[in-house]
Simulated scan of single mutants.
Amino acid sequence: MSGAVLHTIFDILAWLGAAAAVWWLSRRRLEFPAQSFQLPYIAALMFGAGLGAYLFGSANLWLSGQSGIARSVEGALAGGIVAIELYKWSAGITVRTGARFALPLALGIAIGRLGCYFAGLDDFTYGTPTALPFGHDFGDGVPRHPVQLYESTAMAVFALLYVLAVLNRNAFMVTNGFYLVLACYGAQRFLWEFLKPYGPLIGPFTLFHLLSLSILLYAAFMLAMAPKARPVHERAAA
Protein backbone atom coordinates (compact mmCIF):
# COMPACT_ATOMS: atom_id res chain seq x y z
CA MET A 1 0.00 0.00 0.00
CA SER A 2 1.41 3.39 -1.00
CA GLY A 3 2.31 6.08 1.50
CA ALA A 4 -0.30 8.44 0.05
CA VAL A 5 -3.06 5.88 0.58
CA LEU A 6 -1.91 5.21 4.14
CA HIS A 7 -1.83 8.94 4.81
CA THR A 8 -5.40 9.29 3.58
CA ILE A 9 -6.53 6.36 5.73
CA PHE A 10 -5.01 7.92 8.84
CA ASP A 11 -6.50 11.30 7.96
CA ILE A 12 -9.91 9.63 7.96
CA LEU A 13 -9.09 7.85 11.22
CA ALA A 14 -8.03 11.18 12.73
CA TRP A 15 -11.41 12.72 11.90
CA LEU A 16 -13.18 9.64 13.25
CA GLY A 17 -11.07 9.82 16.42
CA ALA A 18 -11.97 13.48 16.86
CA ALA A 19 -15.63 12.65 16.32
CA ALA A 20 -15.39 9.85 18.90
CA ALA A 21 -13.88 12.34 21.35
CA VAL A 22 -16.80 14.71 20.77
CA TRP A 23 -19.25 11.84 21.35
CA TRP A 24 -17.46 10.76 24.54
CA LEU A 25 -17.51 14.29 25.90
CA SER A 26 -21.22 14.55 25.12
CA ARG A 27 -21.78 11.37 27.13
CA ARG A 28 -20.07 13.06 30.08
CA ARG A 29 -22.72 15.80 29.79
CA LEU A 30 -20.27 18.61 30.31
CA GLU A 31 -21.33 22.21 29.89
CA PHE A 32 -19.63 23.97 26.97
CA PRO A 33 -20.43 27.47 25.61
CA ALA A 34 -23.41 27.34 23.26
CA GLN A 35 -21.77 29.73 20.78
CA SER A 36 -19.27 27.06 19.71
CA PHE A 37 -22.15 24.94 18.35
CA GLN A 38 -23.63 27.65 16.12
CA LEU A 39 -23.35 27.47 12.33
CA PRO A 40 -21.64 30.89 11.76
CA TYR A 41 -19.02 29.95 14.35
CA ILE A 42 -18.34 26.59 12.68
CA ALA A 43 -18.21 28.25 9.24
CA ALA A 44 -15.65 30.80 10.42
CA LEU A 45 -13.59 28.06 12.03
CA MET A 46 -13.56 25.87 8.92
CA PHE A 47 -12.74 28.78 6.61
CA GLY A 48 -9.86 30.02 8.78
CA ALA A 49 -8.46 26.54 9.35
CA GLY A 50 -8.56 25.67 5.66
CA LEU A 51 -6.95 28.95 4.59
CA GLY A 52 -4.24 28.69 7.26
CA ALA A 53 -3.50 25.06 6.44
CA TYR A 54 -2.70 25.76 2.79
CA LEU A 55 -1.17 29.21 3.29
CA PHE A 56 1.41 28.19 5.90
CA GLY A 57 1.96 24.71 4.49
CA SER A 58 2.74 26.04 1.02
CA ALA A 59 4.82 28.95 2.34
CA ASN A 60 7.02 26.56 4.32
CA LEU A 61 7.46 24.38 1.25
CA TRP A 62 8.62 27.36 -0.82
CA LEU A 63 10.93 28.60 1.93
CA SER A 64 12.50 25.13 1.93
CA GLY A 65 13.28 25.38 -1.79
CA GLN A 66 10.48 23.16 -3.02
CA SER A 67 7.56 23.90 -5.28
CA GLY A 68 3.97 22.84 -4.98
CA ILE A 69 1.04 23.16 -2.60
CA ALA A 70 1.06 21.73 0.91
CA ARG A 71 -1.12 21.64 4.01
CA SER A 72 -0.10 22.15 7.61
CA VAL A 73 -1.98 21.17 10.76
CA GLU A 74 -0.22 23.98 12.60
CA GLY A 75 -1.25 26.40 9.88
CA ALA A 76 -4.83 25.19 10.27
CA LEU A 77 -4.62 25.81 14.02
CA ALA A 78 -3.30 29.34 13.53
CA GLY A 79 -5.84 30.16 10.83
CA GLY A 80 -8.69 28.79 12.90
CA ILE A 81 -7.65 30.80 15.96
CA VAL A 82 -7.43 34.07 14.02
CA ALA A 83 -10.74 33.48 12.26
CA ILE A 84 -12.59 32.68 15.47
CA GLU A 85 -11.12 35.60 17.38
CA LEU A 86 -12.18 37.94 14.54
CA TYR A 87 -15.63 36.36 14.40
CA LYS A 88 -16.11 36.67 18.17
CA TRP A 89 -14.99 40.30 18.04
CA SER A 90 -17.42 41.12 15.22
CA ALA A 91 -20.29 39.25 16.90
CA GLY A 92 -19.65 40.71 20.35
CA ILE A 93 -18.93 37.29 21.90
CA THR A 94 -16.84 37.65 25.04
CA VAL A 95 -17.02 34.13 26.50
CA ARG A 96 -14.29 31.57 25.82
CA THR A 97 -15.58 29.07 23.32
CA GLY A 98 -12.76 26.60 22.63
CA ALA A 99 -13.09 24.22 25.58
CA ARG A 100 -14.90 21.45 23.72
CA PHE A 101 -12.16 21.20 21.08
CA ALA A 102 -9.30 20.21 23.41
CA LEU A 103 -9.68 16.43 23.33
CA PRO A 104 -10.75 16.13 19.65
CA LEU A 105 -7.76 18.27 18.64
CA ALA A 106 -5.21 16.30 20.67
CA LEU A 107 -6.56 12.93 19.57
CA GLY A 108 -6.90 13.98 15.94
CA ILE A 109 -3.29 15.17 15.75
CA ALA A 110 -2.01 12.07 17.56
CA ILE A 111 -3.67 9.82 14.97
CA GLY A 112 -3.05 12.04 11.96
CA ARG A 113 0.69 12.24 12.56
CA LEU A 114 0.88 8.47 12.19
CA GLY A 115 -0.29 8.98 8.62
CA CYS A 116 2.54 11.47 8.06
CA TYR A 117 4.97 8.86 9.38
CA PHE A 118 3.73 6.12 7.06
CA ALA A 119 3.63 8.50 4.07
CA GLY A 120 7.44 8.55 4.05
CA LEU A 121 9.64 11.02 2.20
CA ASP A 122 6.90 12.35 -0.09
CA ASP A 123 5.11 13.93 2.87
CA PHE A 124 8.09 16.17 3.77
CA THR A 125 7.39 15.82 7.52
CA TYR A 126 10.35 13.58 8.29
CA GLY A 127 13.25 14.57 10.54
CA THR A 128 16.91 15.28 9.98
CA PRO A 129 19.49 12.45 9.88
CA THR A 130 20.40 10.89 13.23
CA ALA A 131 22.73 8.22 14.58
CA LEU A 132 20.34 7.37 17.41
CA PRO A 133 19.19 3.73 17.48
CA PHE A 134 15.55 4.65 16.91
CA GLY A 135 16.29 6.58 13.71
CA HIS A 136 14.00 5.50 10.89
CA ASP A 137 14.90 4.92 7.24
CA PHE A 138 12.06 6.39 5.19
CA GLY A 139 13.34 4.80 2.01
CA ASP A 140 16.49 6.68 1.05
CA GLY A 141 18.90 4.69 3.23
CA VAL A 142 19.31 7.54 5.75
CA PRO A 143 18.18 7.02 9.37
CA ARG A 144 16.17 10.08 10.38
CA HIS A 145 14.37 11.37 13.44
CA PRO A 146 10.79 10.05 13.32
CA VAL A 147 9.51 13.45 14.43
CA GLN A 148 5.98 12.49 13.42
CA LEU A 149 6.03 9.85 16.18
CA TYR A 150 7.46 12.35 18.66
CA GLU A 151 4.55 14.67 18.00
CA SER A 152 1.99 11.88 17.98
CA THR A 153 3.23 10.63 21.35
CA ALA A 154 3.20 14.10 22.91
CA MET A 155 -0.39 14.73 21.86
CA ALA A 156 -1.52 11.23 22.87
CA VAL A 157 -0.12 11.84 26.35
CA PHE A 158 -2.03 15.12 26.55
CA ALA A 159 -5.23 13.37 25.41
CA LEU A 160 -4.80 10.75 28.14
CA LEU A 161 -4.22 13.41 30.80
CA TYR A 162 -7.27 15.31 29.60
CA VAL A 163 -9.46 12.20 29.80
CA LEU A 164 -8.27 11.59 33.35
CA ALA A 165 -9.01 15.23 34.19
CA VAL A 166 -12.56 14.90 32.84
CA LEU A 167 -13.14 11.71 34.79
CA ASN A 168 -11.88 13.44 37.94
CA ARG A 169 -13.97 16.58 37.23
CA ASN A 170 -10.90 18.78 37.14
CA ALA A 171 -12.48 22.20 36.54
CA PHE A 172 -9.32 24.00 35.48
CA MET A 173 -8.34 21.35 32.92
CA VAL A 174 -11.82 21.09 31.44
CA THR A 175 -12.46 24.85 31.30
CA ASN A 176 -9.02 25.75 29.92
CA GLY A 177 -8.36 22.58 27.97
CA PHE A 178 -8.17 24.31 24.60
CA TYR A 179 -5.44 26.71 25.72
CA LEU A 180 -3.62 23.91 27.50
CA VAL A 181 -3.59 21.75 24.36
CA LEU A 182 -2.38 24.75 22.36
CA ALA A 183 0.42 25.33 24.87
CA CYS A 184 1.40 21.66 24.71
CA TYR A 185 1.28 21.62 20.93
CA GLY A 186 3.19 24.86 20.48
CA ALA A 187 5.95 23.90 22.94
CA GLN A 188 6.59 20.40 21.60
CA ARG A 189 6.30 21.51 17.97
CA PHE A 190 8.83 24.30 18.58
CA LEU A 191 11.32 21.69 19.83
CA TRP A 192 10.75 19.21 16.99
CA GLU A 193 11.27 21.94 14.40
CA PHE A 194 14.98 21.87 15.23
CA LEU A 195 14.95 18.28 13.97
CA LYS A 196 13.35 19.02 10.59
CA PRO A 197 14.98 19.92 7.25
CA TYR A 198 12.92 23.06 6.67
CA GLY A 199 14.43 26.26 5.32
CA PRO A 200 15.11 28.97 7.92
CA LEU A 201 13.20 32.23 7.91
CA ILE A 202 14.92 34.27 10.63
CA GLY A 203 18.33 33.11 11.82
CA PRO A 204 18.05 29.41 12.67
CA PHE A 205 14.27 29.59 13.03
CA THR A 206 11.84 28.28 10.43
CA LEU A 207 8.37 29.57 9.68
CA PHE A 208 6.95 26.88 11.94
CA HIS A 209 9.29 27.86 14.77
CA LEU A 210 7.74 31.32 14.69
CA LEU A 211 4.23 29.95 14.31
CA SER A 212 4.75 27.53 17.22
CA LEU A 213 6.03 30.34 19.39
CA SER A 214 3.05 32.52 18.46
CA ILE A 215 0.60 29.75 19.38
CA LEU A 216 2.44 29.12 22.65
CA LEU A 217 2.40 32.82 23.59
CA TYR A 218 -1.29 33.10 22.70
CA ALA A 219 -2.09 30.10 24.89
CA ALA A 220 0.04 31.43 27.75
CA PHE A 221 -1.70 34.82 27.59
CA MET A 222 -5.16 33.26 27.58
CA LEU A 223 -4.27 30.98 30.50
CA ALA A 224 -2.86 33.90 32.47
CA MET A 225 -6.07 35.86 31.89
CA ALA A 226 -8.35 32.91 32.62
CA PRO A 227 -11.08 33.51 35.18
CA LYS A 228 -11.19 31.23 38.19
CA ALA A 229 -12.55 27.87 37.10
CA ARG A 230 -15.85 26.97 38.64
CA PRO A 231 -16.79 23.39 39.59
CA VAL A 232 -17.58 21.20 36.61
CA HIS A 233 -21.30 20.51 36.29
CA GLU A 234 -23.13 18.07 34.10
CA ARG A 235 -25.95 19.18 31.84
CA ALA A 236 -29.36 18.06 32.90
CA ALA A 237 -30.52 14.99 30.98
CA ALA A 238 -32.89 15.82 28.12
Score class of each variant (00 low, 15 high):
77 L>H: 04
98 G>W: 14
85 E>D: 04
226 A>R: 10
188 Q>S: 14
39 L>F: 14
123 D>Y: 02
232 V>T: 02
91 A>V: 08
187 A>K: 06
55 L>D: 05
189 R>Q: 09
193 E>I: 05
162 Y>D: 11
2 S>P: 13
87 Y>M: 00
134 F>G: 09
215 I>C: 03
115 G>P: 01
52 G>F: 05
207 L>G: 07
104 P>L: 05
197 P>Q: 05
197 P>M: 00
91 A>F: 04
131 A>P: 05
108 G>R: 01
227 P>E: 09
93 I>H: 04
24 W>F: 04
116 C>W: 05
65 G>A: 04
131 A>H: 07
110 A>V: 07
53 A>Q: 01
109 I>A: 08
157 V>K: 00
216 L>V: 11
59 A>S: 09
26 S>E: 15
13 L>Q: 01
127 G>N: 04
135 G>W: 12
22 V>N: 06
120 G>A: 09
137 D>A: 12
174 V>D: 06
41 Y>M: 10
150 Y>F: 09
140 D>S: 02
198 Y>S: 11
126 Y>K: 10
122 D>Y: 10
3 G>V: 05
113 R>K: 13
36 S>Y: 01
228 K>E: 15
21 A>C: 13
230 R>L: 15
133 P>D: 15
182 L>V: 10
19 A>S: 11
230 R>Y: 07
30 L>F: 06
110 A>L: 04
190 F>I: 04
222 M>V: 01
170 N>L: 10
122 D>M: 00
25 L>S: 09
132 L>C: 05
31 E>Y: 00
224 A>D: 12
209 H>F: 00
183 A>R: 08
216 L>R: 03
136 H>A: 15
163 V>G: 04
82 V>H: 08
177 G>I: 06
132 L>P: 12
231 P>R: 11
136 H>F: 15
189 R>N: 02
201 L>Q: 03
74 E>I: 07
144 R>G: 09
92 G>M: 13
139 G>D: 12
134 F>K: 08
159 A>N: 09
206 T>N: 10
117 Y>V: 11
66 Q>C: 03
115 G>Q: 09
108 G>S: 09
2 S>M: 00
34 A>S: 15
91 A>P: 08
155 M>G: 00
13 L>I: 02
59 A>F: 13
178 F>I: 15
45 L>H: 08
170 N>S: 15
137 D>L: 05
109 I>K: 02
8 T>Q: 11
126 Y>T: 14
92 G>Q: 07
150 Y>Q: 10
61 L>T: 15
207 L>Q: 04
11 D>Y: 13
151 E>K: 04
119 A>G: 11
53 A>H: 02
18 A>I: 00
198 Y>Q: 14
175 T>M: 14
203 G>I: 12
153 T>N: 00
64 S>F: 12
18 A>K: 00
233 H>W: 14
19 A>L: 10
154 A>K: 06
23 W>L: 12
132 L>W: 14
114 L>K: 03
142 V>D: 12
114 L>I: 11
100 R>P: 03
40 P>G: 03
35 Q>P: 01
39 L>P: 03
230 R>M: 14
47 F>Y: 06
49 A>K: 02
124 F>Y: 14
213 L>R: 03
77 L>Q: 00
104 P>D: 04
222 M>R: 15
95 V>Y: 01
59 A>T: 09
145 H>Q: 11
118 F>V: 12
218 Y>H: 05
186 G>M: 08
